[in-house]
Amino acid sequence: PGLDLETSAKQPPRYVIKFATVAPEGSTWMKQMRTITQAIEDETNGRVIFRIYAGGVAGDELEILKKIRMGQLQCAAFSGVGFGKILPEVRVLDLPFLFRSYEEVDRALRRLKPYFSQHFREKGFILLNWAEVGNVYVFSKRPIRVVGDFRKSKAWSWAGDPIAKETFSALGVTPITLPVTDVTTALSTGLVDTVYAPPLGLLALQWHPYVKYMNALPFAHSTGALLLSSRTWEKLPQELGKFISSEFEKSMSTMTSQLRQQNEEAIDVLKNHGITIIPEPTGQALQKFDAIHRRVASALSGKIYSYSLLKQLYGILGRNTR
């Protein structure tokens, strides 16, 4: 070990961490990310260096995952698409109509973090922290107020997402599955008239000119996470690893609250564009949405996540488990 110290004193080894995300360059999220990584580079005197591939230039989440496995990349921000391949059970957090407030989201993420950290580690990843995508809402050309309104819609859906598939099936809709890049055309031609997205995403993808209504009830809360490959983690000296993960821990909560604020502001922008916000349903109408949630949750339990995990989540949220 003495020798190691000596060599590191002469020429400290540089640890290059290649980080990829589909989040666009220039977004607040990416700006924040650059601030964090710059701070880490400065604090470690350049011993840890981040190379950032933003905006999907390294491919979509599945390709990024493959590149991490082959060692081309070391770190990435993943959401449901990537989780589906890494640790599908995380997607229990993406269930439709699950959370009723950000407080519930935070509580669930905090309490389940040790559990998921351990399971990510078994899959070869270190969970640096959660990095949420945010609340996803339903946007449509015709108002969707109650569950029954879905039946008449031409809804778009991601292809190959089991949760979306089960949800639309419970809503009585056969969605039109298209790649994201085709949706703008499909909305403008009328091939689809109902989409779901976070408000910021809707603006970024420029789908907003083609929709008139937004239902204020979140369709789902999309969870994301920053993952570092275990192989890289093990190569890092312990104190560096600890430093990096504490830096991300510190700044991610700021990032999350900023993102939430931005999504709220995005909703205001949408209002200014003439999109009508349909207030959250209450009473019986809300119960119908909850019934959809229950149907999807029970249909997928045992397939994507275990029943005991679902029960644990319901326990944290104080829901009855029947």
């Binding site: 292809a159 190959g160 598939k165 099936s169 056969t174 599955t177």
Partner: peptide, 10 residues
């Protein structure tokens, strides 16, 4: 039929 054919596109 569409539901049963969801593997056809991939």
């Amino acid at each position: 039929l569409l539901k049963h054919l969801d593997w056809s596109q991939p």
